[in-house]
């Protein structure tokens, strides 16, 4: 069975000013993959995600999403940005947040009955429907992440990219969150960035280690190898 390729990076390099940051990255992600992206802090995990989403431009190489350019293809990706990019004190209810996932490529957007139904569907799927009228800062870390994932899902994506979804989620709720991702993985591809290798290797089908370009990062390599899913990029 050949699986359809959804994300492809060919010989991609990226640098901030003069310092080379990611070099010659080749990566292919297929339908229904569950990819864990690991690597040390400052190793380029988030940079890699931003390149895939067209938020940064590569210095060289080619990136395609669903055979299209990142800027066109990214609309089929649900994205959960890093915690620090999100205003956690934002005065909105869980329902309002999830509806924001229905926003599209235009300036004027009123939410339709269909948008509300879709928001309801994913709030239920993430087990936070009962919390829909709660304000964001009345939710626990784990509940917030479920709401944010519901928002990313409300775009009805073919792949979900989550940048460090476990920060601010207490240990007990982490497994639960990943079980939900595993469930979602039955229909869409999941790409998770995190440093928690234990949980990544338990749930993902493959782990990609990103550590700039030249260094392999032996420790990460080792763990990945032990779990038999290692794929170190360099």
């Amino acid at each position: 069975m050949t699986r359809k390729e959804i994300i492809s990076l060919e010989n991609v390099s990226f640098s901030y000013s003069s310092q080379s940051f990611l070099e010659n990255i080749n990566l292919k992600i297929f339908e229904k993959d569950f990819i864990g992206i690991a690597g040390p802090n400052g190793g380029g995990k988030t940079t890699l995600i931003k390149l895939i989403l067209g938020l940064l431009k590569p210095k060289s190489g080619k990136i395609t999403l669903f055979g299209k350019s990142p800027k066109k293809g990214r609309q089929e990706i649900g994205y959960l940005s890093q915690y620090e990019n999100v205003d956690l004190d934002f005065p909105a209810t869980a329902m309002e947040i999830v509806l924001l996932g229905r926003i599209e490529k235009k300036l004027i957007k009123f939410f339709s009955e269909r948008d509300r139904k879709i928001a309801e569907k994913f709030l239920k799927k993430m087990g936070v429907w009962d919390l829909r009228e709660r304000k964001l800062n009345e939710l626990s870390g784990g509940e917030k992440q479920r709401v944010f994932i519901a928002k990313a899902l409300a775009t009805e994506p073919r792949a979900l990219i989550l940048d460090e979804p476990l920060s601010n989620v207490d240990v007990g709720a982490r497994e639960e969150l990943f079980k939900l991702l595993k469930e979602l993985n039955k229909s869409i591809a999941i790409i998770v960035v995190d440093h928690n290798l234990e949980i990544l290797s338990k749930y993902s089908k493959e782990i990609v280690c990103v550590n700039k370009c030249v260094e392999k990062g032996a420790k990460y390599h080792e763990i990945a190898r032990v779990h038999g899913k290692g794929k170190v990029m360099y």
Partner: peptide
């Protein structure tokens, strides 16, 4: 854009 500008950009909001 007030809540999460980056994901709005991924949705191609101007």
């Amino acid at each position: 854009i007030a809540f999460d500008e980056e994901s709005a950009e991924v949705r191609n909001v101007p």
